[in-house]
């Protein structure tokens, strides 16, 4: 297959960055999107040029590190997929493909398509856990969980922390990411004791880190590779409000 690629090249955080055009004449429709980048990179190296830096690890859609914007869509035009699980057979012969890093001020570019997402770690530190030291929790099977609650909690727990929701949001909000964590833990018995406190801590942290607020655009839900529903945002908002009655204090 033949493609014209426009790839964002940026040496480091200080560099201005620009699109560079690459022609590819012999890509295979069975290639994954990242295999196409590997293929291009081998050529660039052999020509004495620097390869395009991009992040990847599991290449199975579960590690959450391969995010990039393809033709304006985080993770590309296919629904419910990460970019590593996107295949060239889904593109038209001769297509022009624009490839950029996540667009968000909270994710500064490290190099080319690689961004720094440590802000998501900082939000996790604010409350994305249950305060039980590993090893001291009772045997999980002794606490019954209704199947429906387990299934819905699992829908939220599927979040891979890739940051696509932030990159897609016109407000630059991380509401879907935070609400997925809150929803997952808030639906299970182990997450109850800290439920409101957790909502308050994570949402405050999100504000402090400079994320925007949710405006119900639903772009996050549309690009989420794990198809996480914005219903979890509503649930998170409810927990957040409730927190001020359960634990009164400054917002």
């Amino acid at each position: 297959m033949k493609f014209t690629l426009f790839i964002w090249r940026q040496r480091n955080r200080g560099d201005r960055g620009r699109f560079v055009k690459y022609e590819l004449n012999d890509a295979d429709p069975g290639m994954s999107f990242l295999e196409m980048l590997d293929f291009l990179n081998q050529r660039l190296i052999e020509r004495g040029e620097e390869p395009v830096a991009f992040e990847h690890d599991c290449r199975e859609g579960i590690c959450g590190c391969c995010g990039m914007v393809v033709n304006g869509f985080p993770h590309g035009p296919e629904k419910g997929t990460t970019v590593c699980q996107l295949y060239l057979r889904h593109f038209q012969e001769g297509a022009h493909i624009h490839i950029e890093p996540w667009r968000s001020r909270v994710f500064p570019v490290i190099k080319d398509l690689v961004v720094d997402r440590s802000v998501l770690d900082r939000m996790m530190r604010a409350g994305g856990f249950i305060s039980v030291p590993t090893g001291s929790a009772p045997e999980a099977n002794t606490v019954p969980v209704p199947k429906e609650a387990a299934e819905v909690a699992m829908d939220a727990a599927a979040c891979i922390g890739c940051g696509a929701c932030v990159a897609a949001c016109p407000n630059g909000a991380a509401a879907l990411f935070v609400s997925a964590r809150l929803g997952h833990l808030g639906l299970l018995p182990q997450g109850q004791p800290e439920r409101e406190r957790r909502a308050k801590a994570m949402i405050r942290r999100m504000d402090r880190e400079g994320f925007g607020a949710c405006g119900n655009h639903r772009e996050c839900e549309a690009v989420c590779p794990k198809r996480i529903s914005i219903r979890f945002i509503a649930r998170a908002n409810r927990d957040f409000l409730k927190a001020f009655f359960v634990h009164p204090g400054k917002a």
């Binding site: 579960i62 770690d121 996790m124 530190r125 604010a126 994305g128 856990f129 249950i130 305060s131 030291p133 590993t134 699992m154 727990a157 599927a158 891979i160």
Partner: peptide, 22 residues
């Protein structure tokens, strides 16, 4: 189970690690 048993264990461990870092 949704191909996620290992992943969920990893996320649980990651959460516990984040707590210790915090």
């Amino acid at each position: 189970c949704r191909g996620q048993t290992g992943q969920q264990l990893l996320l649980g461990a990651y959460g516990a690690l984040c707590r210790q870092v915090g």
